[in-house]
């Protein structure tokens, strides 16, 4: 009886040691589930709101000089449109698109 208890104790201690030093077998990684054939037929709207495209903002770092040049072109292009609005004020002229590289 004593031998059995000792054997069980030794197994438990060895198991704990193995876990401590990282020898314990890793849990089996979950495998990717095969794509459901029906998923191909799911409309794209399922993943987002229909009619509301995601706005992707450019995050690439660009040199400060290049950014300033783009800002200058933006200001000049916007001023052209705004001057048109001030000559002939209307909601349509206020919303008119400019040739700014920042908003097109």
């Amino acid at each position: 009886m004593i031998e059995v208890v000792a054997l069980v104790g030794a197994i438990v201690v060895m198991g704990g040691f193995a876990v401590f030093v990282g020898l314990a077998p890793e849990p089996e990684p979950q495998r990717a589930q095969p794509a459901d054939a029906a998923a191909d037929t799911v409309p794209s709207q399922f993943f987002g709101h229909a009619g509301k495209p995601e706005v992707i903002v450019e995050r690439r770092p660009i040199a400060a000089d290049a950014a300033l040049r783009r800002l200058e072109r933006h200001v000049r292009a916007e001023q052209v449109v705004v001057e048109g609005f001030l000559r002939l004020p209307s909601a349509e002229n206020l919303r008119r698109r400019s040739a700014s590289p920042l908003v097109n």
Binding site: L68, L71, V75, R76
Partner: peptide, 15 residues
């Protein structure tokens, strides 16, 4: 003055 990518810069507002 305007911050461009965290760096203060002078941005054109009129000419």
């Amino acid at each position: 003055p305007i911050d461009v990518q965290g760096t203060p810069q002078d941005a054109l507002v009129d000419e």
